[in-house]
Amino acid sequence: MAIQFAHQPGLIVYLTIGDPDLATSKKIALAAIDAGVDVLELGVPFSDPLADGPVIQRASERAVRNGTRLTDVLALARELRTERPHVGLVIFSYLNPLLRMGLEAFAKAAQSAGVDAVLVTDMIAEESQEYRAIMKNHHLQTIFLVAPTSPDERLARIAEVAEGFIYAISRVGITGTQQQVAGDARDLVTRMRRYTNLPIALGFGISNAAHVGAVAEFADAAVVGSAIVALIEQSSPQQAPAAVGAFIAGLHASAIVEENVLS
């Protein structure tokens, strides 16, 4: 299994698993995949999500409170892999829940569940040697973040260790929505292309079809997170899967239209 982008731009969706509950998360994930998502980031809830804005903080808090654990996220990944074999599955987490499970035990379980890749928010390239070795043993790709503040020498270093795709952070700051795609983003993607042939996905603040269209001009994929997590927060558990599916279909169709306009 490998990460592939069937759409242009590719669409990556982040979900905080366990918000509002595990069963609903599964329905939302299936609806998202069926609406045309290339890669699903399964967010592991954490008590101290310091890189996240208020929307994902609240989702994480709800999921932690209802007892969602890393092992639950892996069990969900296994079900999704069985039911939707083609979709890319990424475990998206802060480091501590993985450490607590044990990196080896985690990697073994993730491989067995059919996970493609892992992204750890607070794992930087310099600290990653042992982590990468363990993931590699279990055929899990390791995705890394690059930021507008990363100088070229760091981009080069990250390119050496990154697999799957590069997750480019569109602006300095925490996760959350914004009015338009920041000017920082194009510059970052342009700089990163010098060091990698991997696809580059842009995330943080991508929240509507216009944003996805703008991303298509210079990046390979768009990551939509907080906008969907907010939609789930505003919907009842019964409505959430359909609402998310419709939202994603809208992002996708508009992106194609946008691209036709541009080309």
Partner: peptide, 22 residues
Amino acid sequence: AMVPGRFGVYGGRYVPETLMAA
């Protein structure tokens, strides 16, 4: 010895990439 700021195995740097430059 690879990473500065280690005390035995403890310490290190586990932060979002955005902060690394700072």
